[in-house]
């Protein structure tokens, strides 16, 4: 098994990042600085963590439309707890538990009710979003203890803490889980062929539930970082993150039908998206061009891969 699918989307991604890099450099040469690198990294971490969780869900053959809602619900829970006087580490733990429970609900509903994940998580997206608004009365929560701000504003050797102490270790752990553990293999087996996996005695239900729990907890973690960085917990946060996280995972080489993909590919795609977003923003192009361009890149990446595949097939038949 390839770590990153070099025959597939990875080369396309590299070409796209090269073009973007050249473009933004011509537009604003000042982008080559450590400050910019860190700013871009900070921007990428939150959606990047959400996308890591989404990778597991999609690789196991599911999809999670509710990660953005969990991101919001978990951060306002933490926020309200802190405002009520709960010490911040306890509040963060509580928020992560909210993520865990949300993930568990998604997983159990998918497996027990045998309903496609897209429907379950569409429903829970409405519900979690609504809950976040209900418990806050729709108003932002702020005024947290200073210690909490370390998550999203702290630095280690001038490097933003969330990059070096959260995202990168998390990525390494998840990559090991994916490629060196039984669970990682089971995720891919479940996604490749659920029926065959079931017949070989794998309890695919448990595997699927576990992937939703991972996605839920990671979305909550991202929510904590975001609330800390912005010193504000927002009930309406993360609305776009559901779809962007899916776009990132697919750009990173995961098959939307499951079974194929890697967290490293997702990390690479996160970097490309962050580069496009930050690069265009640095050139003062409005946000709407950024999302439009990402849409185009998503379609182009899949199209180009399809064309390359077809060319390969043609060459194979011609040779044979």
């Amino acid at each position: 098994m390839n770590r990153i699918d070099w025959t597939g989307r990875a080369p396309v991604l590299i070409v796209i990042s090269a073009i973007t890099l050249i473009g933004v450099t011509i537009g604003a040469p000042g982008i080559w600085s450590v400050d910019n690198l860190f700013a871009m990294g900070v921007l990428a971490v939150e959606i990047g963590i959400i996308a890591l969780g989404q990778t597991f869900v999609i690789n196991a053959g599911g999809i999670d439309l509710s990660v953005g809602a969990i991101f919001a619900l978990a951060q306002v829970t933490m926020g309200l707890a802190m405002v009520a006087g709960v010490p911040w580490p306890v509040a963060v733990a509580l928020g992560l538990c909210v993520g865990l429970v949300c993930g568990l609900i998604n997983g159990l509903a998918t497996v027990w009710l045998r309903v496609p994940a897209i429907i379950v998580t569409l429903a829970t997206m409405f519900a979690f979003n609504g809950l976040a608004l209900v418990i806050t009365n729709g108003i932002d929560v702020s005024g947290f203890p200073d210690g909490f701000y370390v998550l999203g504003q702290g630095t280690i050797f001038t490097i933003p803490l969330q990059i070096i102490a959260i995202y990168l270790p998390l990525l390494i752990v998840l990559a090991i889980v994916q490629w060196r553990t039984r669970f990682g293999r089971l995720v891919h087996l479940t996604g490749t062929n659920a029926l065959a996996a079931r017949l070989t005695g794998i309890r695919i239900g448990r595997v699927q539930i576990a992937t939703f729990v991972i996605a839920g907890v990671l979305a909550a973690l991202a929510g904590a970082i975001s609330a800390s960085r912005l010193t504000t917990a927002r009930p309406d946060a993360g609305e776009v993150d559901n779809l962007i996280s899916i776009a990132i995972v697919v750009l990173g080489g995961s098959s939307i039908f499951g079974g194929k993909g890697s967290v490293l590919g997702t990390a690479l795609a996160t970097l490309v998206i962050a580069l496009v977003n930050y690069g265009l923003s640095f050139n003062n192009l409005n946000a709407v061009y950024q999302s439009g361009l990402i849409g185009l890149i998503l379609i182009a990446a899949v199209l180009m891969q399809n064309i390359m595949l077809r060319l390969q097939q043609r060459r194979a038949t011609a040779a044979g």
């Binding site: 039908f257 849409g295 899949v302």
Partner: peptide, 23 residues
């Protein structure tokens, strides 16, 4: 004709069409 999975294709056009409306 492009063989792009429906979710992906329309996820892409979701943002492209919105950007077009803005432009």
């Amino acid at each position: 004709y492009g063989r792009v999975p429906p979710v992906i294709a329309t996820l892409g056009t979701l943002s492209v069409y919105r950007a077009a409306a803005f432009i």
